[in-house]
Amino acid sequence: MMKRLVVILAIIISTGHADRKLNFKYNPGCTSECSNLLKLAYVRAEGDNDTVHYLFDFTMKPSLVVVTSVKDSVVAIDYEKLKTKGPDNTISFSNVPIYVFGTVLNYLYEFNDINDTACLSNNSDIIGMDFKRFNNWNLTKLQNEEDFVQVTISANSYRSVGINKTGNVSVTLKVFGKEDKGFAFPHLVHTPESGEITLTLDHLKTANPKSRFAVEILTLSSYPYNFSEKITKKTFSDDSASGGVFSSILVNAIGEDFEEGGGYLTWKPVVFKAPDTHALNASSTAQYSIQSHSNAVDWISTPLFNLFGNELFNTQSYLMKATNVSFGETGDEFYLKSNYLYWTFLVGVGAPPNDSLGFFEISIIASLLLLLTITMILVFCIFMRWISSKRNSIIYGQ
């Protein structure tokens, strides 16, 4: 019985992704002031056999590019070419990447939800705000440890033709060296091959009292996962750490033979309307169909153009898609009620994480199994003692 218990616990604990050692650099290889050329937060996640590179760029549109490579591959940035010729082909690796998956925050939409449908596609009164036109994205918070890196960027105004807004818009990237659940709601399960991104709108000026917001996200997937992309909704019976959210959305890139294991986005259909991310402050998200998106103007404003240059527009090599996510649900009194919005999603490569048991739940199960084992041993001992006593009574007539 004890041997079986040890085997069960070993299987539970060993299931998961191998840990990675994290290393952070801002504008790697820059020897002087480079922020007028590039704003790149770089995280190197080194494993036993390979390396995952996270390129979080906020020079224009906030973007996260996840690159897998052989273990000793090194990123290089040509700052001189950036300065004299432009961004194309200015980011490279010493070894050709094995796989590249990119995610771009392209547009923030404000829509006037007069009929309270909480549906972007039901509205024609829409204001589109290009993320690259938020004024002066700046690095406002950095936490750098061997197994955890957090980077927050912020902008406090938006100005373009006919649009003038104030308020704080921030994007936070978290990269973890170990597989676990996030420590803040909605407690997404992350792996060492995924980054957690949070978009926050704080007192962003609205055009209408019934305004809601939505975001357009672009994705790019390289060979061999460049055949198609699908969106699915997964439900599960229990998730003790997620405040009653029993489903998740998965967008993942698929290979020509419908094999999975490429890049993905995943999130739970919940958005929080207060800094206290409690279930009482939660509302819903709505997700929309995936569309092809080859608009060169959008892609040039991302680090993917720095990496691939004009080759980026060879549609046979790269899968380029877009999807929208809107925030809020019917009856939640719109964005203006709290003037706050907090939404988190994962960007990763490989097998998407499952909402499996965390360390806390494993500890409880292990304790219960151990308690059950001890109880059974005690019951067995008491039973054998009782049998021995009955046998003696029969033999000696007592």
Rank of each mutant, 00 (worst) to 15 (best):
M1G: 10
L5N: 11
V7M: 14
L9D: 08
H17C: 09
A18Q: 13
R20A: 14
K21V: 15
Y26P: 08
T31M: 15
L40Q: 08
L40Y: 05
V43N: 01
V43S: 02
R44K: 15
D48S: 15
D50G: 07
T51E: 02
V52P: 05
F56D: 03
L64Q: 06
V65N: 11
V66G: 05
T68M: 03
T68P: 00
V70W: 03
V75P: 14
I77P: 04
K81V: 05
D88P: 04
T90W: 07
F93K: 02
N95D: 15
F101I: 02
F101E: 02
G102A: 14
T103W: 14
V104G: 09
L108Q: 06
N112R: 03
N112M: 06
I114F: 03
A118D: 05
A118L: 03
N122K: 09
N122W: 03
D130V: 11
K132W: 02
N138G: 13
L139R: 12
K141Y: 10
F148S: 07
V149D: 04
V151P: 02
S160F: 00
V161L: 08
N168A: 07
T172N: 06
G177I: 10
D180C: 02
F183H: 13
A184W: 02
P192I: 08
G195T: 01
I197W: 04
T198H: 04
T200D: 05
A207C: 04
N208I: 10
S211H: 10
A214W: 01
V215W: 10
E216M: 15
I217H: 04
S221L: 03
Y223M: 12
N226K: 04
K230L: 09
I231N: 06
S237C: 11
S237F: 14
S237R: 11
S247N: 00
F258Y: 12
E259I: 08
E260M: 03
G262V: 01
F272W: 04
P275N: 00
D276I: 13
T277E: 01
L280Q: 13
A282W: 01
S283I: 06
T285R: 01
A286S: 11
A286N: 13
Q287C: 13
Q287I: 14
S289T: 10
I290L: 12
S292P: 05
H293D: 10
N295E: 13
D298Y: 10
S301M: 14
L304A: 08
L307T: 03
N310K: 10
E311F: 10
E311S: 12
F313W: 00
Y318H: 08
K321S: 09
N324E: 09
N324K: 12
V325R: 02
F327L: 02
T330Y: 11
F334E: 11
L336E: 15
K337S: 11
Y340D: 00
Y340F: 03
P353Y: 00
P353L: 01
N354V: 07
F359M: 08
F360V: 15
I377Y: 14
C381V: 12
I382V: 12
N392W: 15
S393G: 11
I394E: 14
G397D: 05
